[in-house]
Computed example of a mutant assay.
Amino acid sequence: MSARNPGTDFDLEWLSKVRVNTQAVLKRAQHIQGLKLPKKQWQTAWLLKAASCIDLTTLAGDDTPSNVHRLCVKAIQPVRYDLLRRMDMHDKGLTTAAVCVYPSRVADAVRSLKAANSCLPVASVATGFPAGQTPLETRLQEVRMAVRDGATEIDIVINRTLALTGQWEVMYREIVQFREACGDAHMKTILATGDLGTFTNIYKASMVAMMAGSDFIKTSTGKEAVNATYPVAIVMVRAIRDYFLRTGHKVGFKPAGGIRTAQEALVWLTLIKEELGNDWLHPHLFRLGASSLLADIERQVYHHVTGQYAAYHEQPMA
C-alpha cells in the first residue's frame, strides 16, 4: 500500500462550487470504451496486471471456512503455474492484491494465508455493509473487530441518507471516526454510487470521503441495482485528481460489482491510465473488486498460451 491519505479539514466552500457536466462525462466514457485494446502478448501482459490488482472477494451468505480457504489459495496462485511457466512468469510472485471477506470470516482468511506463508492483505467490509443502516456505534465496533482479527484493509460504506440529504459535514465526521477505528488498517470508502442519484452528488461524496482520510474510494458494494459504470468512474477519478492537485495526496480507486470479463478489466485499466496516469496502475492505488473476473482472465491467458479455450472445469475455481 502507498502512503496514507491524512485527510484535510472539512471545506464546504469547495463542495458548494461543484457542478458536473453530465454530457461531457458520458461522452468521455463513450470515448474510452471505444479505444482500441491491446492484442496478443500485450493483452496477456495487461491481463496479468489486472489479476495483480484484484481484491478477490467472497461476500455470500453461505461463506464457510472452507470456501474462504479456497479463495485464499486461489489468491496466492491466481493463474495456473504451468501457464505462467510457459510465459516465463512463474517466478515473478504474481498474486491478487488482497482477499476480501465479511468481518466474521477475517480470522479464517488470516489463518489460511498464514498457513501458506503468504503476507497477502486481508480486506474486510464493515460498517453495516451493504446498506450502512445500522447504528453508528455498531458500525464502529464492526471495524474494530475486523482489525482485531487481522484485517489490514477495511472497506467501509457511507451512510447514503446523509449524502442524499446533503448532510456532508455529518458524513465527514462519521468517516473520520471510521478512519480512527481502522488504526493502521487502510480504509476504502464505498460510495454506493448507484444509490446517489446524480454525478454532482457522486463527486461531492468522493471529495468528502477523501477529506475525511480515505485511502481509497470505491464505487459500489456489488449489492446495488447499478454498480461500477464508466461514467461514474470518470467522475470519481476526476475528484481523485482534483484532490491530488490541491493536497498532494494520492488516493486509490476501486471499481466493484458486475466486473466479470477480461475485456472489461482491460477497459478499466485503460480508463485509469488515461485519466490518472501510470502511477495509479498498481495495486497500491488501483483495485478491482471481483469474484468471477479472475476465471475469465485465466481463460484468456490459457487461450494465449495454448491457442485453445479451457473448459471451466479445467481451471481451479476462483
Rank of each mutant, 00 (worst) to 15 (best):
C182L: 13
G213L: 01
Y172C: 02
D195A: 15
M207K: 10
G183M: 05
D195F: 05
I190H: 01
G194T: 07
R179A: 06
I202V: 12
A209N: 03
Q177Y: 00
L196N: 00
Y203V: 08
G213T: 05
M211T: 01
T189A: 10
G194P: 03
F199W: 03
R173F: 02
Y203C: 08
D195E: 15
T189P: 03
K204I: 15
Y203N: 03
M207Q: 12
M210E: 09
M171R: 11
A212E: 00
M211V: 03
A212C: 02
M207E: 13
M187I: 15
K188G: 07
E174T: 06
T200H: 11
L196A: 10
M210Q: 03
M187S: 03
A185G: 06
Y203P: 09
R173H: 14
A212N: 14
Y203R: 14
K188A: 09
H186C: 06
A181T: 15
T193L: 09
A185M: 09
A181K: 12
V208K: 01
I175P: 03
K188I: 08
Y172G: 01
M207N: 00
A205Y: 11
R179Y: 02
L191G: 05
D184F: 08
R173T: 07
M211C: 09
T198V: 05
A212M: 06
T189M: 07
I202S: 02
M210F: 03
R173L: 10
Q177M: 15
R179C: 06
M207R: 13
V176L: 13
A192L: 00
K204L: 01
I190A: 13
G183L: 14
D184G: 00
N201P: 04
F178C: 15
G213S: 13
D195M: 14
D195N: 09
K204E: 08
E174N: 08
Q177K: 15
C182Q: 12
F178K: 10
M187A: 13
T200Q: 15
V208D: 04
L196F: 10
G183D: 05
G197F: 07
I190F: 07
H186R: 15
F178P: 02
I190S: 01
A209R: 10
C182N: 01
T193Y: 12
A205G: 07
I190N: 10
I175W: 11
A209Y: 06
L191I: 14
A205T: 14
V208E: 08
F199D: 03
D184V: 04
A205F: 09
G213Q: 11
K188D: 06
R179F: 00
T200P: 00
A205W: 11
G197K: 13
G183T: 11
A212D: 10
Q177T: 02
G197D: 14
T198P: 01
N201C: 07
G213F: 00
G183R: 10
G183W: 04
T193F: 08
R173P: 04
I202F: 04
M211L: 04
M210A: 00
Y203D: 04
A205I: 00
K204D: 08
V176Y: 06
D184E: 11
K204C: 11
G194Y: 08
E174F: 14
M210P: 01
D184W: 05
Q177L: 04
T200L: 00
A181G: 12
A185L: 12
I202H: 02
M171K: 02
C182Y: 02
C182I: 07
T198R: 08
T189K: 03
V208P: 00
G197Y: 09
C182H: 08
V176H: 07
